[in-house]
Simulated scan of single mutants.
Amino acid sequence: MQPTGDLRGDAVHVGGDARQRFYDSRGYGRPLEGNAIALSRVEAAHLLFRGDLAGVTLDANGGGSGAGDTVGFERFFVDSAAAVERFAVRYLVYADLRDRGFYLSPARDPWPGGDADVADAVDLVAYERGATPDTGTVHYAIRVVGEREAVPASGLAGQTLAVVDEESDITYFGVDRPAIDGATDYEPPADVRGVLLSDRVVVWDAPDGLYERGFYGQPLTGRAAAVEGVLQLSLLEAASLAADDRLGLDEVVETGDGAAESESDTTAAIVARGRAVEGDRFDRRLATYRDLRDRDAVPKTGFKFGADFRTYLDVETVESLPHSEHLVRVVEPGHAFAPRELSLDVRLAGGVRKQLLFALTDGTGPIEWLSVGRLTP
């Protein structure tokens, strides 16, 4: 004979031997006095679905039709979906992780249960396999979203996104703070001279090593070239070198819009040109570029991959260049992920065997780094 529960507010109370039956042995709910437990709605629904609860008596004080009735899974599920925001998608994820062998606790009001120290936006915490809520370490802090919901990027590190699509399939993404530890040992010379053109800087007599060892720029070459040593720098590369007092300008070629016309120093002239051709996005990308260089990593354009940068952590020479390790997208601190676009970015990065990174920056303050990848719990 299976027990029944009583819905009281947002929790289902179960008496009898419920503590031993559900909490101690399988990690459902939270203990009350004696052997009683309180279940969240999602936990109660899962036990009803499995046949481990005979029914739930709806809150007699809750009002509405059916108050005081004892109902099964179907009616309880519909009642809960009406009473609790996004109940259906949370239930789907809860049930999926239970089927994968995890003990879980709800972590967001009004789902009582679990006292893990997680962000307010986290819906569920899954414990290490074989561990219970009172003894276990949290393995996944899970945030449940539908495929059409926007997800703020800031503060997402350490969470697992469980995205429920329109057909109720679930895709899991792990979000972490990446370790970007480069080992490129190259110091550019201090006497690089160039000419600022429309959207790049040309160095006519590039010093040895600037490209081959530092991987700055792109050589201007050809089969029948009679001119050697010409290097084209992107505005980001040029601005970074100028800010480090490694690059000076011999000439500024005006573009007709007055960009850089009034700038007297090299860095300001290049940054002004960058803003003229790219807007505020240039400052965010420049801050990210310089942060990566400060970490002894080499950022290069990620245009072919639909990203801002691809990175090389350890460049000895261009001739022995390793595969790039990361794809980097630069976004504003207030950026919100669209799950469909995030899935596309992650799929692309995985397809070319790179880790997907996001740099959250306004171009002036510290950068918040995130790595995002598919995972299978």
Rank of each mutant, 00 (worst) to 15 (best):
Q2N: 13
P3Y: 08
G5V: 05
L7Q: 12
D10S: 12
A11L: 09
V12Q: 03
V12G: 06
H13I: 15
H13V: 15
A18K: 02
A18H: 00
Y23M: 08
G27T: 06
G29T: 03
R30N: 03
A36N: 03
I37S: 00
A38M: 08
A54K: 10
L58W: 08
D59C: 06
A60L: 11
G62L: 05
G64F: 08
S65T: 12
S65N: 12
G66W: 05
F73T: 11
E74L: 13
F76W: 02
F76T: 05
F77N: 07
S80W: 10
V89N: 06
Y91H: 10
L92A: 14
Y103D: 11
P106Y: 04
R108E: 13
D109I: 14
P110T: 06
P112A: 10
P112K: 09
G113Q: 01
A121T: 12
A121W: 09
V122R: 00
D123M: 02
V125A: 01
G130Y: 09
T132C: 03
P133D: 00
T135H: 07
V138Q: 03
A141L: 01
E149H: 04
E149K: 02
E149D: 13
P152T: 07
P152V: 09
A153I: 05
G155C: 05
L156P: 08
A157T: 06
A157K: 01
V163E: 01
V164F: 06
D165S: 04
D165N: 13
E166S: 10
E167K: 08
S168A: 15
I170A: 00
D176K: 07
I180M: 07
I180R: 11
G182N: 08
P188Q: 02
R193A: 14
V195R: 12
R200L: 12
V203Q: 04
W204H: 14
G217V: 05
P219D: 05
A225Q: 14
V227P: 00
V227W: 08
V227I: 15
L231H: 07
S234D: 06
E237C: 03
A238I: 07
A243C: 01
L247D: 07
E261V: 14
S262T: 13
S262W: 14
E263C: 11
G274L: 10
R275N: 08
V277N: 04
G279Y: 04
R284M: 14
R285Q: 15
L286V: 09
L286N: 07
L292N: 01
D296T: 14
P299V: 12
P299F: 08
K300S: 09
K300G: 05
T301C: 04
F303S: 14
G306Y: 11
A307K: 09
D308P: 07
F309K: 03
R310E: 14
V318F: 10
L321N: 02
L321W: 07
H323C: 05
E325W: 06
H326F: 14
L327M: 13
V328H: 02
V330K: 06
H335Y: 15
E341R: 15
L344M: 10
L344F: 12
A349Q: 06
R353F: 12
K354P: 01
L357V: 10
A359H: 02
A359E: 03
D362T: 08
G363R: 03
G373E: 15
P377C: 04
